[in-house]
Amino acid sequence: MPGPAVEVQVPAEPLSTPVGKTAELTCSYSTSVGDNFALEWSFVQPGEPISASHPILYFTNGHLYPTGSKAERASLLQDPPTRGVATLKLTDVHPSDTGTYLCNVNNPPDFYTNGLGLINLTVLVPPSRPLCSQSGQTSVGGSAALRCSSSEGAPRPVYNWVHLGFSPTPSPGSMVQDEVSGQLLLTNLSLTSSGTYRCVATNQMGSASCELTLSVTEPSKGRMAGAVIGVLLGVLFLSIAAFCLMRFQKERRKRPKETYGGSDLREDAIAPGISEQTSLRADSSSGLPERTPSASTVTTTKSKLPMLV
């Protein structure tokens, strides 16, 4: 015959405790405690499954056995927990104590209920001193982003930027801030945008702040002059290139088309300095009749020979 069913009661709402204080995780049960009664408390970090729980303490065979990293700070509100109260006390809570706690009551031979209760605990931590930083172009007309972030804080802090010495309400479009990420975006900077900016990180446990100084400067005259010279050189280069191109096209249109006149050399033309006689002799070798050179031809040929002294 199975014993009475084990019924475990835990708070339905999550619990929260300030860092450094004592947390009481209420757990009660109803059953007829026998010799095999056992109680176990365990812990699961945020985001992990129940199967990954780590033990905190055991109560079995009339003895209490704290265990794990929380052993020195964990105890039971009633020891022994045999009168229906299994509340866990955790002293000097740390931020790492945030998570889910499991109260598990086991009373064989009752195997028809799991006797399990879950409690979510949040350790409240004030924001740590945030870190302020900036990036972007801090000259007139430029844009800059100011950032603020705290490494600690539970619940997660919200961030608010204030330009010291100025109205908290900026001109439309010049300042846009994100309270969750802690970023302040400044656009269309002017000289009046210069000054000290303070970021305040706040949650229900307190607040902390940091400051930075933003210096908006006018564009450098040397930089402006260099930019103007660069533009002028670019225009000059393009003008010269366009002029050269137009000149080339104009000369090309004026150039006459090449034609071949009667004075052009032919493949069968006789090279200068070679007499007709030589040409005829060459023809005789091919079987054509040899023509006797005329006197005028000989005279001309001789006149072209160099005179020997």
Rank of each mutant, 00 (worst) to 15 (best):
P157I: 10
F59T: 01
C148T: 04
L146I: 06
E179G: 03
P272V: 11
I56C: 02
S167Q: 04
P306E: 12
P126F: 03
Y58R: 13
L57D: 05
P293N: 07
A154R: 11
S53Q: 15
Q177D: 11
G287N: 03
G173C: 09
T31H: 05
G226N: 12
V231Y: 06
R129N: 08
T22H: 04
T31P: 00
D97F: 03
E211W: 04
L88R: 02
M246S: 10
S139E: 09
A144E: 09
S128V: 04
D264K: 12
P81Q: 04
S294I: 02
P272M: 12
L245E: 07
K21M: 11
A38Q: 13
Q45S: 12
T213Y: 11
R255H: 14
A144K: 05
L185D: 10
K89D: 00
E40H: 06
Y159S: 04
E276T: 07
T113D: 01
S51D: 09
G136Q: 12
A86W: 01
Y112L: 09
Y260C: 11
P95N: 10
V6P: 00
R266D: 10
N114F: 06
L88V: 02
N203D: 13
A144T: 15
L233Y: 07
A71M: 05
R253V: 07
P108W: 05
D268W: 10
G115A: 01
G142W: 08
L280M: 13
P2S: 08
S30M: 02
E152R: 13
D110R: 02
E211R: 14
N107I: 03
K70A: 11
N114G: 00
A52P: 02
E152V: 04
K89G: 00
T259S: 13
G136S: 11
L131C: 07
D178V: 08
E48N: 08
P46A: 02
K250P: 00
V105G: 00
A208Q: 09
L238T: 03
R266H: 14
W41A: 01
A12I: 01
D268G: 05
R73H: 02
V123P: 09
V105R: 00
S209Q: 15
R73Q: 14
R198P: 01
E276S: 12
N36M: 09
N160M: 13
Y101E: 04
E24S: 07
T202H: 01
S30N: 15
P55F: 04
T113Q: 01
N61V: 00
S149A: 14
V180W: 05
G173R: 11
G20I: 03
S32G: 11
V125Y: 01
L245F: 13
R252C: 06
Q204L: 06
S28I: 03
G234F: 13
A12G: 07
V231W: 08
L265Y: 09
P256C: 10
T192E: 14
G84E: 10
W41F: 09
I274K: 14
C148W: 11
N104D: 03
L186W: 07
V180K: 13
T213I: 10
S69H: 09
V33Q: 12
T113I: 00
S75Y: 06
L236K: 06
V309S: 14
L185E: 08
S28A: 09
L57Q: 03
S286Q: 14
R129T: 15
A5V: 08
V19Q: 15
D35K: 12
V235P: 00
L185Q: 14
P109N: 07
